[in-house]
Design a protein around this nucleic acid. Sequence first.
DNA 1: CCCGGAACCTGAAGGC
DNA 2: TGCCTTCAGGTTCCGG
Length: 271
Amino acid sequence: MPELPEVETIKNDLMPHVAGRIIESVTLFWDRTLQQPSKEEFTRLIAGQKISGIDRRGKYLIFELESGYRLIMHMRMSGSLMLGRDNPPPHTRAVIHLDNGSAIYFNDPRKFGRMQLVKDCGCVLGKLGVEPLGEQFTVEMLAELLANRKTPIKGILLDQRLIAGIGNMYADEALFASKIHPTRPADSLTKKEIKQLHQAIREVLRLGIKNKGASVTNYFRPDGETGTAHRQFKVAHCKNKPCPVCGTPLERIRLHQRGTYFCPNCQKEDY
DNA sequence: CCCGGAACCTGAAGGC
DNA sequence: TGCCTTCAGGTTCCGG
């Protein structure tokens, strides 16, 4: 499940191979992968566009085109991008043909991933919250985001309108690292806990990027390799394993309709 | 405004 | 072995 570190890795891996290339055409194998504009307009507009760079905002990947257009992608649950020049792999939903004979395959078994071509990014990215690795994201800002909110803290971390890029895996990791129980009401966190959580969020995301993303399910890097970040996970997807800190069996609960992993000893429910 | 739940999808895993 | 059910979770939408 591509979250911020996975999308950042895709961006870094892809950049040297596509910067300066011209998109000759795009083939769609599953029409709903394209969100906007219409297939006809998209096909017409995308041909001949030169890629000047790639950016990332939250979990969105943004191809910057020299004309000013932006090709924005979201991998959702199972999407990944592959570089190649042979036959597209199984579950390829779209192919971006480049002018040197290579191609970017939009691979997405579950068909949840989306791409769209826009002139103004604002309508797609405008509602996103702060970049957790950016300078703007301070302890004070996190404190403001949590104030007066009764929602479980994990729900806040997953809300892309508040902080952009954290998903289920890294939310669990950040809460474990800061010893905070996932169901704690957001406004019940102490100043000290907020500071620990702030630091933990940045650390787990940076470690994820350093390890080229976590390949728990469908995530692959553009060269087909897996990331190694999941090997560093202390609780996420570690069902039935002992806590790496105290040895207590990790627990899994359902929160916000998501599997949530934590240590019942290190992350106390009461406060 | 907020919250919970369904929908979108397919493949893997678990139960019997 | 094989069929059937459940689960995986990012985002959007809808109803209360």
